[in-house]
Design a protein around this nucleic acid. Structure first.
Lengths: 210, 210
DNA sequence: TTTCTTGTTATACGACAGTATAACTGTAAG
DNA sequence: CTTACAGTTATACTGTCGTATAACAAGAAA
């Protein structure tokens, strides 16, 4: 991808994070990227097209990071799920800036089709990944693993992951975000009705030092 | 509270929901409320003050609705918690408009103190309520109920409630939102390590048909 | 009746938005 | 050598923004 194009997208995200969506003006974004405003037209056609492209760019970062974390490690389903969950509630995915950006964009999903498309696609991808992590885990335990059961588990897991990611990123300072991996894994064990520590024991030690 | 003031706040929320925060211009809000733009200055001092007041107004609606649902019903801790959870994932709290509004405002919490104050206060209130629901429930089961344990449970429950509320409100149409109460109660039972149906049996029948 | 206050409109002003257009680079092809 | 084109700047135009200010209406206080 073009370097200039990416620098404009990153400048857009910076502006949105600092001043809200209306703060990402053509002139300000261009100045931050070290160019003049006319280039936006050249690369994106319009300012609005640039901002929605920046949304897609952000979501791509988030899902790539989480997806890659599930790949690493052994083939044990427990370990893969544990790594995926922990990756979603620790840096770099757990970042105040990213949470704020996500929320700002999400606010437009309901009324603007360009944003709705990006959101639906990324959500579908996230759920599909979650279901491919849950299914082998249930099978290994000789438990029912029909699509409906897996989907319901995935919905609940997705919710608790998103919720903790949000709370942690908003950083109200009412508790230490270092607690999040433990809380997330424990909640996931409960939701999936797994024996205690089934997931916890597979998480990297450095993420869970008491 | 003044009726004109409230009509301006509701017009503000309408504009934010439809066109984002930058769509809530002084002229458009005034037109929607059936007055002229000068009145904003009279009632709120500035447009920015009106918008942040609208955020507080929205959050008040959400927490009131959920809080009152926990009050109703018998004194059984299971029933109170079940009602509270269900209220958060069904109408009127589960509304695409409200979710979009919430997200739009949340995007500003990190950088604008006025929004941060409102958010922190409402979050603190939500958590405190959740802990007063969890504590008697654990006590009744003769389980450990120290503050740290209750807090961790509250964090996880808050996350799964928020996450399901968000998913349901965004309405990507990948599953029926009527499933949410069941999923939410089942997840809560798992997180709190309660026997199956401990919470489910206390929910109103009409919320859980099929 | 006169005066004061509150709610409200009408209007004017300066700032800044998005973008269209024309001109200026450099570099690769002919 | 020159031609053509992609990348880039400079600038001008029109619209809309937030808000300051002056005026108007109506009821309460004097």
């Amino acid at each position: 991808m073009d370097a200039r194009r990416r620098s404009l997208l990153e400048a857009t995200l910076d502006c949105v994070a600092e001043h809200g969506m209306s703060g990402a003006t053509a002139r300000r974004v261009a100045e931050r990227a070290g160019v003049t405003a006319g280039l936006i037209r050249h690369y994106f056609g319009s300012k609005e097209a640039m901002v929605s492209a920046a949304y897609g760019y952000l979501i791509g970062q988030l899902t790539n990071e989480a997806g890659e974390s599930a790949e690493k490690g052994s083939e044990a389903p427990e370990q893969r799920l544990a790594r995926f969950i922990v990756a979603n509630v620790t840096a770099p995915n757990l970042s105040p800036r990213k949470v704020a950006l996500w929320a700002t964009f999400i606010g437009r999903v309901r009324t603007e089709p360009a944003y709705a498309d990006i959101h639906r696609e990324s959500y579908r991808e996230f759920m599909a990944l979650l279901e491919t992590l849950i299914h082998p885990l249930l099978m290994g335990l000789k438990r029912p693993a029909d699509p409906t059961t897996c989907q319901h588990y995935a919905i609940a897991l997705n919710a608790v992951i998103d919720g903790l990611w949000l709370e942690g990123g908003l950083g109200h300072g009412l508790y230490d975000t270092a607690l999040l991996p433990k809380i997330a894994l424990s909640a996931a064990e409960g939701i999936l009705a797994l024996p205690s520590n089934t997931l916890m024991q597979h998480a990297a030690a450095d993420s869970l030092s008491s």
